[in-house]
Design a protein around this nucleic acid. Sequence first.
DNA 1: TGCGTATATAAGCATATAATTATATAATTG
DNA 2: CAATTATATAATTATATGCTTATATACGCA
Lengths: 116, 116
Amino acid sequence: MSNSISTVEIDAATKILKLLGDKTRLTMMAMLSEDECCVCEFVELFQMSQPSISQHLRKLKDIGLVEENRKGQWIFYSINTAHKGYPFVQSLLAHLPDQKGKLIELEQRGLRVCCD
Amino acid sequence: MSNSISTVEIDAATKILKLLGDKTRLTMMAMLSEDECCVCEFVELFQMSQPSISQHLRKLKDIGLVEENRKGQWIFYSINTAHKGYPFVQSLLAHLPDQKGKLIELEQRGLRVCCD
DNA sequence: TGCGTATATAAGCATATAATTATATAATTG
DNA sequence: CAATTATATAATTATATGCTTATATACGCA
C-alpha cells in the first residue's frame, strides 16, 4: 500500500517525543527541516552557551535524528532522513510554524555561516 | 483551504510533546484514541500503583488533552477532541501501533469496566 | 609550529520528574 | 449510617534533565 502511514513502536516513539519535548531541540528540528545549520548559528539564535547547544545536538544525534557534516572548522547538522522514525518526525514537524524567519534574521545580522 | 495542516505554536507543541514523551502517558493516549478507559483499567494494564496512574492522567487533563466523565463510582477518561492541539495529537497517534489488543486482553481477563 | 576559532566533553549543581506510601474524598451498597 | 470500592491528593524520595564553568580536541592560517 502506498498510502499507509508508517508506524513507530511505542518505545521508539517515546524516545523521540521525549527529545522533542524541549523547546530548544524542537525549534532546532523545525529549523533543520528547512535547512542545515551549524552549531554557531544555533548559539547565536538561542542566546545560549555553546556547550548547552552542543549537548542538545548530541542527544538528537545519539538517537540518530540528525547527522553531522564537517565543513572546515564548522560542523553542520542536518536531519537524518534515513532514520526509521523520520516519517513520524516529519509529519510532526509539519504542524509547527515556519522557521524561515529565524534564518533570515541571522542572515541579516551577518551571522549565517557560508562555506562553499 | 480544506487541505491545510493545522499549526501549533512551538510552546504549545513543546508542552504536548513533553507529556507524550513518557511511555505510560503515550500508551494511554494511544488507547484512548480508540476507546475511553477508566482509571482502574489503566491500573491493571500498566501494573502500576493507582496514584501513579492518577497523576499521569492529571497531567494530561491539566493541559486539556483528556477529559473525565464520572459514571457511578468510576471515572472514565477520553480524548478532548475540542483541544486546540487535537489535530496535531491525532496525527501523531496515527503513527503508533494499534492498541486494541490491550483492551481485548483486559476484556478476556474480565477486567473491562462496563456500566451502561 | 603556534595561535585563534569552532566544537565537544567533563564535572558540578539546581530543578524537574515519576514513583511510592499514606491519607482524603466521593459514590455504592447493605 | 457504616463499610467497601474507586479515585484524588499530599508528602517523600530517587533519578533524570538542563544549564553553567572549565577543559580538551580539531581545524585553519600566519
